[in-house]
Design a protein around this nucleic acid. Structure first.
Length: 1002
RNA sequence: GCCGGAGUGGCGGAAUGGCAGACGCGGCGGAUUCAAAAUCCGCUGCCCGCAAGGGUGUGAGGGUUCGAGUCCCUCCUCCGGCACCA
């Protein structure tokens, strides 16, 4: 070991003494230096436009490279700023993007802001500051915070959903959907004019949209009603028919009404009867609302899940939300007082038509027209007051109340129907366990084979007839399983599937029923009675007709308002109605298309009222992945060529090749939280499919590969009774090695658990603080090292030290702490060279499979090896290293370069700094990923475990070249092994080359 | 209730059916220091043993296998989703 040069000791002494007063050596890697390096590279990337990505046709675009579109779910910029969960996904995508650039891809990696929505508006109501002001402020803060992480976004593509140049196109897409209908024959959306043309040419029956139910759609006529010859119809009727087909329509719907939020909500926004935002109770209320006919796409949304590389759990969730179920629709004729048929029938949906002989009563939802329109149906003696009372009670019950206690309630409606199979007259009840929105809002109740019907029948003493033979010893309860049909006339003896087929055929032949597929998915309620959202590009004329404004008039901007407080009310009014000067306008001022005005008989002077509802917060995120491809296009929502390139729709080649590209097309990697599994991800797929059908985009799906990062939780403490205790109310009375936690105030023992970060538990971490203390590179490494990206894992500030030590050690291996010069070895150590190849190989494959924690572990091993090699060779940086030009270095220039490149995706600032110190003036962002020599991954000899009867007894070195037989022989004759089996008879040997030898002897 | 996912040292975690606990934190001991920080070296699942060594060990119980953290069955716990959808 060489002696230290005298001046080293002296210098060390100096820095040591000054260290207490002024800090570490000038070039020691600590938070201060990290901060300087990071600021330097962040501004350099900005100035040089390092990550600005050209589009096809633009200067600098290289068409020879493959493309990689990697997207983060953009954040909702809240006033609270970034939390530690945001940078988790963003760091992961940044690592992949930096890696892909080095692997020779054109990488699209954009960022923006999902900025319309309720929270900003509620904050504005509290503070009196306009949501635009607070939102812009929050965006500025988010941008600052994100830039501080050194993410390689192409910031020139940034936009917010609140930008007029963005939501102009959101409104434009709304008009596209409004002017589209779904053609079931072609299984796709088409322009509404094509439907009208088919009516005019008499190539399509003039009937109301069969998919539009009577109580959601047009007037009082049921869906599918045939209306007559097109030429003979008046304008109003034609409108009604066409409107019933539109993918965006106005319907009188029983909706989820949240009085606290002052708005109606989509089904997807209601969780356990409460609003997703705020957790307020939700009520059912019939309201006229804008709806999207997403149900038309139910089957495709379900089917196309199979072409997506998404987590299975997410696909399952979407599948369940869509909820396909196959069964039958059956008509039960309504009887008059004499028990004769009236010619009217009650239609039900059932998945168990085979049990129809056991249908002993019927149940309709309290919102069902049969209950509502009392005079239309002949009723038996019944207490009308009780019926009205019950309906009122049921309708005013919040969903929370409905779900609490599944005690069945209900009353007899007075209506009787005939069971078409058994011929019995059976009563129709109403109960809120039947939902208006599913099927036909009415069921045939078969208590013997349905648990809910059983409970209801028991409570109200209705008859129960078993029609499926339960197994021996079955108790006094419903039997929903398999078995032979009984009490079912011509179905007797058949199993469930056979009976279903037979009864459907029987009903069909008598025109009393038909096979039917039903979906749980319901149409998407798209209007909100709020301020902070996109206005609809729609006006209403004096006859109450909705009419689109011209695409040239977009965007329809929000009016300035001072008072956007909701009026808590049972009779909800859209907030924008308060802006009378804005809402009341003329056809000319609103800029409607000439042809639309003419068709509606309006002149530019005609008074019209703007639609005063706004779009929900989801609207902006339904197509943002498309806008990033070409965010500054002012003529189209996205340029066609840019869209085809980045979304991978295929721009050339045969039809087959394009078809194939389209199947695989979409964002190459989309990363975000699992909480959007059925909300954003379903809505965005729907919009995308409509745009695809209309020929506006080239792929049928927006997101090809999806990944959910896990939740970052925090430690908290739990009492015996599972109640939680804040971290500052607990003390450790054990040792650091074996902690024992007690609640300070009471002295009761508590256990450490993980919980969501929350203000009340005092365990929220602010990323700004962490970066200030450790630097962004360390923060990035820490979050990626915590565990698998998809797993939920607890934040533990104490652990960050390990990553900051790793970077400091890496720095010290490469840089002289006194002079700041690189420390280079003259010749390469073969041990380090071998390790370097293995680590680069490992890091590359780990990045590909998003296993960043193990990639970092590999780099730590490399640095530890190099660092201790440095120690042995002559002392680490701090203790003596200021030879001229860093003579104690352990890495050659070439090795250090490769290390810097491998480190770059994870800790890009330090990597760039090293790269520059190594004499490069350009960024390493587009350098080629270092090559791995396969020969360096193999050893001549490897340690093999030797087991006797499965128990580990020895470890021997064996040549890698041996096959199983060779290894067996080698092991049995090995000096360390032979004594272990001496005198025993070897019965069997399992030899696995490179792993182990298991000897069965006795 | 139904459908997913997961249970590995004091903590975070690693492990194509093949040496359980890589790597990091924490802890213990040591070097350096007047002292500390920083840094470096060694040890660190648990139990027995002065030691050599032995036993035991991946939520519990069973099974398949030469061999199981990994595959199968039953159960327990935790997390997520759905939940009167006929």
């Amino acid at each position: 070991m060489p002696e230290k040069a005298p001046q080293d000791t002296a210098q060390h002494g100096d820095s040591s003494r000054t260290g207490t007063r002024e800090g570490a050596p000038a070039h020691r890697y600590n938070a201060k230096l990290a901060g300087e390096i990071e600021a330097k590279w962040q501004s350099r990337w900005d100035e040089r436009g390092t990550f600005v990505t050209p589009n096809p046709g633009q200067a600098g675009f290289d068409a020879k490279k493959p493309k990689f579109y990697c997207l983060d779910m953009f954040p909702y910029p809240s006033g609270a700023g970034l939390h530690v969960g945001h940078p988790e996904g963003y760091t992961a995508t940044d690592i992949i993007c930096r890696y892909k650039r080095m692997k020779g891809f054109n990488v699209l990696h954009p960022m923006g802001w999902d900025a319309f929505g309720l929270p900003a508006e509620q904050y504005a109501i509290q503070t009196g500051v306009h949501p635009a002001v607070t939102t812009r402020r929050a965006i500025d803060n988010f941008r600052r915070q994100l830039k501080r992480f050194g993410f390689s976004y192409d910031w020139t593509r940034e936009f917010g959903t609140i930008d007029e140049e963005y939501y102009r196109w959101t409104q434009w897409i709304f008009l596209k959907i409004y002017n589209a209908w779904y053609d079931p024959e072609q299984d796709r959306a088409r322009h509404i004019d094509e439907l009208i043309a088919e009516f005019e040419n008499d190539t399509r029956d003039v009937r109301l949209n069969p998919a539009a139910a009577e109580y959601t759609g047009a007037g009082d006529l049921p869906g599918g009603t045939r209306v007559g010859e097109w030429e003979t119809l008046d304008e109003e009727t034609r409108r009604m028919i066409v409107d019933s087909y539109r993918l965006a329509y106005v319907g009188m719907q029983t909706v989820n009404w949240c009085p606290k939020l002052g708005t109606a909500l989509a089904n997807e926004e209601v969780i356990d009867g409460r609003s997703e935002r705020g957790g307020f109770p939700v009520f059912r209320k019939p309201m006229r609302q804008w709806m999207f006919r997403i149900t038309a796409y139910a089957d495709r949304l379900l089917r196309d899940l199979s072409m997506l590389d998404w987590p299975e759990s997410t696909k399952t969730q979407q599948g369940e939300w869509i909820g396909k179920s196959e069964g039958a629709e059956i008509d039960f004729p309504i009887l008059d007082d004499e028990g004769e048929m009236t010619g009217v029938a009650l239609r039900v949906f059932t998945t168990r038509p085979d049990t129809i002989f056991g249908a002993t009563y019927m149940v309709v939802a309290p919102e069902h027209p049969l209950v509502d329109e009392t005079q239309e149906y002949p009723r038996r003696a019944t207490d009308e007051d009780a019926l009205r009372e019950y309906v009122r009670y049921a309708r005013n019950r919040s969903d929370v109340e409905r779900m609490e206690g599944k005690d069945k309630t209900g009353v007899f409606t007075g209506v009787m129907v005939r069971n078409p199979a058994s011929g019995e007259a059976i009563p129709v009840w109403t109960s809120d366990y039947v939902l208006i929105g599913y099927g036909t809002g009415a069921i045939m109740a078969v208590p013997a084979q349905d648990e809910r019907d059983w409970a209801f029948a028991k409570k109200f003493e209705l008859p129960i007839v078993r029609t499926v033979q339960p197994p021996e010893g079955w108790g006094d309860e419903a039997y929903t399983g398999e078995g032979p049909a009984i009490n079912s006339d011509f179905l007797n003896g058949l199993n469930v599937a056979e009976a279903k087929t037979k009864i459907i055929a029987w009903l069909q032949s008598r025109s009393q029923g038909t096979k039917r597929v039903n979906y749980r998915l319901r149409d998407w309620l798209f209007s909100r009675q709020r301020y902070w959202g996109e206005p609809f590009p729609i006006v209403w004329d004096e006859k109450g007709r909705h009419l689109p404004v011209s695409a040239d008039a977009l965007p329809v901007t929000l009016p300035e308002m001072a008072d956007y407080a909701p009026v808590e009310s049972e009779d909800p009014q859209p907030l924008l109605a308060k802006a009378e000067g804005w809402a009341r306008t003329t056809a000319g001022e609103a800029r409607m298309d000439e042809s639309v005005m003419r068709a509606a008989g309006l002149t530019p002077e005609s008074v019209v009222m703007r639609e005063t509802n706004t779009m929900p917060g989801w609207a902006g995120s339904c197509w943002y992945e498309l806008r990033y491809c070409d965010p500054r296009d002012s003529r189209r929502f996205v340029g066609r060529e840019a869209e085809r390139y980045w979304m991978g729709g295929g721009s050339s080649g045969s039809d087959d090749a394009r078809e194939d590209a389209a199947q695989r097309g979409g964002v190459d990697l989309y990363v975000g939280g699992a909480e959007h599994a059925v909300l954003h991800l379903l809505y965005a797929r729907f919009w995308h499919k409509v745009l695809f059908d209309l020929g506006e985009v080239s792929t049928p799906e927006p997101f090809h590969k999806l990944f959910h990062q896990g939740l970052i939780t925090s430690f908290a403490f739990q009492r015996e009774d599972k109640s939680l205790v804040a971290v500052d109310e607990v003390e450790n009375r054990g040792t650091d090695e074996k902690p024992a936690y007690f609640e300070t105030a009471t002295g009761t023992p508590v256990t450490q658990i993980t919980a969501k970060m929350s203000k009340s538990l005092k365990n929220v971490i602010n990323p700004d603080d962490v970066i200030a203390e450790f630097g962004a590179d360390t923060f990035r490494l820490y979050e990626m090292y915590m565990g698998p990206l998809e797993a939920s894992k607890p934040w533990n500030t104490r652990d960050i030290t390990g990553l900051s030590r790793f970077l400091a050690r890496a720095w010290r291996v490469c840089v002289d702490e006194e002079s700041g010069a690189v420390r280079l070895a003259e010749s390469a150590s073969s041990e380090i060279e071998k390790k370097l190849h293995r680590v680069i190989d490992r890091v590359g494959s780990d990045i590909e499979r998003l296993a960043f924690n193990t990639a970092i572990a590999a780099m730590i091993e490399l640095v530890n090896l190099a660092s201790s090699a440095g120690e042995k060779a002559g002392g680490a940086g701090s203790s003596g290293s200021s030879g001229p030009s860093g003579s104690w270095g352990v890495l050659t220039k070439d090795q250090m370069e490769r290390f810097a490149l491998a480190l770059a995706p994870f800790a890009p600032h330090m990597a760039e700094e090293l790269w520059e110190k190594l004499g490069h003036s350009a960024s390493l962002a587009y350098e080629a990923w270092p090559a791995v020599d396969p020969a360096m991954l193999r050893d001549d000899e490897v340690e093999v475990a030797v087991q006797i009867a499965g128990k580990l007894k020895a470890r021997i070195m064996a040549p890698t070249s041996l096959d199983a037989a060779g290894l067996e022989h080698y092991a049995l004759t090995h000096a360390d092994v032979a004594p272990l089996i001496a005198g025993k008879q070897v019965r069997k040997v399992i030899a696995v080359p490179g792993r182990l030898v298991n000897i069965i002897a006795g």
